[in-house]
């Protein structure tokens, strides 16, 4: 049974080592993307005119194929993890900005007015009112970003074996071992589903105020927005 997860020695890693690496390469960019997206989104909410051009720029960025993005970066960052992670961070940013803007905009005007009337300052109002209410939309964005990030890391294999679980694809072909390719594909898919499930769990935890039925509905409306990326 243990042979199932045995890897060729040239990978210099165990299967679960690759899983951990995969997670790191996929999720750190999402986190960075989120940290950049929050202020950018807030700016777009504040300055309405800014949103349309920002949307255009993000759409164009998203149109650059990941593989090309990786390869172009080699010239600057070499054959390293960073080369894989920078494009993934950009894609995450692209998915998250509209998600956060939509989420923050979906906060009812009356709620904001009530918060202001109660004496909330702009920062407090943002952190304590707008962000929590926008949380479902933001998490929906995070789900799309992390699932696609997990999937895209594999492509990093092409640039000097920086694809974590994706590296198994190359080994599988080289040593003609389909088992390794199965391990890569199934492992990546399960990883994506687990990250997705974890984020759903996070949303349930963060939004106890949402009625069950609405939450379900909401998940479906968010599904469109996710799918529309």
């Amino acid at each position: 049974m243990s042979e199932l997860f045995d890897l060729p020695s040239d990978l210099q890693n165990s299967y679960f080592g690759l899983v951990a690496l995969h997670l790191r390469e996929a999720l750190i960019p999402v986190l960075v993307g989120l940290l950049v997206a929050l202020p950018v989104a807030q700016l777009c909410v504040r300055l309405r005119w800014l949103y349309a051009p920002v949307l255009w720029v993000t759409t164009v960025l998203y149109a650059i194929p990941s593989l090309a993005f990786f390869v172009i970066l080699i010239d600057y960052t070499g054959l390293s993890e960073l080369t894989v992670m920078i494009p993934l961070a950009v894609y995450s940013l692209v998915v998250l900005v509209p998600a956060i803007v939509d989420g923050v905009r979906s906060v009812p005007q009356e709620t904001l007015a009530a918060a202001t009337a109660m004496g909330f300052g702009p920062v407090r109002r943002y952190v304590q009112v707008q962000l929590p209410i926008a949380a479902p939309a933001i998490i929906a964005g995070l789900r799309v970003a992390s699932v696609s990030s997990v999937s895209l890391v594999s492509v990093g294999m092409l640039i000097g074996n920086e694809g974590a679980l994706g590296n198994l694809l190359n080994s599988g072909l080289t040593y003609n071992q389909p088992r390794l390719i199965w391990l890569s594909v199934v492992g990546t898919a399960v990883l994506a589903l687990l990250v997705d499930a974890a984020l759903i769990g996070l949303r349930v935890l963060l939004t106890p105020w949402m009625p069950r039925a609405t939450r379900k509905n909401d998940a479906r409306t968010l599904a469109v927005k996710e799918a529309a990326r």
Partner: peptide, 15 residues
């Protein structure tokens, strides 16, 4: 949709 999205395109192609 969620399941389909979780499948890595590159890996799936090699497979």
């Amino acid at each position: 949709a969620t399941s389909a999205r979780a499948l890595p395109s590159f890996g799936l192609m090699v497979l």
